[in-house]
């Protein structure tokens, strides 16, 4: 159904400017993407608010669901800087968000969704000069204290700001800093209690992420042309 109008779930010209794969390969990856870049968030928006809205596009009965949310952080201050990645288990869920959620409000701001190549290490940090997103540095309407309702409320402003500022103070980088969210179902392990490597013994994402790293090289937050 696309002769008369353009569906909203077509990939846009959002791209990861540091991805080192050619356009065709990128399109290929995007057509199977399970990850969304979410932009124009308030700096105060929480992952739980994001979870609530984006779970409306989840299809657990089809093997889907929200795999993880990766909050975009200012590289220097480790505070949210207005973007995040939402990763599902299936491509159909990501497309549903493009159709139904992108362009609607969350925390009283109109958010924007874009299909993304997939999270890879380091991309949770802004890579603008200031530590935030590059795209915000280009924006005319950029408001540094960008808030939804969270920024406007006077009474709790300070407290909330402190809470937000501290929430990700422990954010780490390097391999394994960001949780995978849980992979495919595994058969019960009857061979019993081998002590496995420290972190995330079943995390086959390691391989996927490793694979992606080699393909995409290091990259930071998504940007638009």
């Amino acid at each position: 159904m696309a002769h008369v109008i353009t569906p909203l779930d077509q990939p846009s010209n959002y791209k990861d400017s540091q991805a080192r794969v050619d356009r065709k390969k990128q399109n290929d990856l995007l057509s199977k993407s399970t990850t969304l870049y979410i932009g124009n968030l308030s700096f105060y928006t929480t992952e739980e608010q994001i979870y609530e809205l984006f779970s409306k596009c989840a299809s657990p009965e089809d093997g889907g669901g929200i795999k993880r949310i990766i909050m975009g952080l200012d590289r220097n201050s480790r505070t949210p800087c207005g973007f995040c990645f939402v990763e599902y288990y299936t491509n159909a869920e990501a497309l549903a968000c493009m159709r139904y959620v992108s362009g609607t409000k969350l925390d009283e701001r109109i958010i924007r969704c874009d299909l993304d190549l997939g999270y890879s290490e380091g991309r949770q940090f802004g890579r603008g000069k200031s530590g935030g997103q590059v795209r915000d540095e280009h924006r005319q309407d950029y408001d540094p204290g960008r808030g939804g309702w969270g920024a406007q409320a006077q009474r709790l402003e300070l407290e909330r700001r402190r809470e937000v500022e501290e929430r990700y103070a422990d954010a780490q980088d390097g391999p394994g800093a960001v949780a995978g969210g849980g992979g495919d179902w595994k058969e019960a392990d009857t061979s019993d209690s081998r002590l496995k490597r420290g972190r995330s013994p079943e995390d086959e994402d390691e391989n996927i992420r490793g694979g992606q790293r080699s393909r995409l090289d290091e990259d930071g937050d998504g940007e638009r042309m």
Binding site: E47, I70, R167
Partner: peptide, 8 residues
């Protein structure tokens, strides 16, 4: 603290 903290 957050959903990601829970996952971690």
């Amino acid at each position: 603290r957050s959903f990601s903290h829970l996952l971690n």
